[in-house]
Amino acid sequence: MQILGQLIVSGISVGMIYGVIAFGYQLTFATSKTLNFGQGEALMLGALVGLTTINFLIGAGLGNLAAFLIMLPVVCVFGLLQGAAVEFFGVRQAVKNKSDSGWIMATIALGIIFKNMAENIWGHDALRFPSPLPEAAISFGGVRIQPMEIAIVIGAIALMIAIEIFNRRSIYGKAVIATANDRDAAGLMGIDTRLVIMFSYALSSMSAAFAGVLVAPVTLTGATMGAALGLKAFAVAIIGGLSSGIGVVVGGLILGITENLTGFYISTGYKDVPGLLLLLLVLSLKPAGLFGAKAIKKV
């Protein structure tokens, strides 16, 4: 029972990371019906830029936690710029030409380029990321939880809520929803929808970069850390539905937990199988995702 609890708890924190990345997929899909297949690389770059920043700050005499908190906005700004660049170089032309697949290759290609750049700058080895919180686990009735795992859950939820509030409350956020609803009509409102799409890419990469520095202290950091996370988060986005905010959280948790359970009770070799089976099952039974709803449309 204790082991089960332990597996579930650590599944939850990994699942929340999947959820945040998948949330990023949703942001761009809503406005442009395109996705950044280099989302995992956006996470990896965010984590590595964060690593360099935090090491610099710690070197300058700051404590781990202070350094981490100062690093966060730096990483977020970097993520925004990186996402805007992906949109500008990889997606814009494809969207303009109404190309069905140009953006797929372009975002994959950019992802590979980013990975190569990272390998050249930060090397091939996995690097340790300084933890902002004590690494000693706290015990809850025998279930041991690292403080950073709690921080992941809180940070992930806070980020998604912040973006949701922005979308619902601010006029710019409403412009994003309007663009997602009907791009032509949004243009007629005076909304620069091309800018909105660029912004959604920026926000999407920022979410990934943020997830990167959240997960980095409990894993290791390196040029290859993004690929598997990006792919699994893609599965989560499909399982949860590309249009449902709550869907990606639930989808992330399902995947995170089943991975851990399979890894322990069956074999770590089969760790990835249940999630992918679930993906296939969802695709064949409920293609819009578990929580995906068709937009209300009335003529």
């Binding site: 412009a175 929803i177 309007a178 949004a186 409102m189």
Partner: peptide
């Protein structure tokens, strides 16, 4: 120039009040 397009094209997932506010987007920004 305000254009109320063919087929109405309101924003279905936003409330009426937000649809109206978006009409004033250039004024609000």
């Amino acid at each position: 120039v305000a254009h109320s397009p063919e087929g109405r094209r309101v924003f279905p997932t936003l409330p009426v009040s937000d649809n109206l506010l978006l009409g004033a987007f250039p004024r609000l920004t």
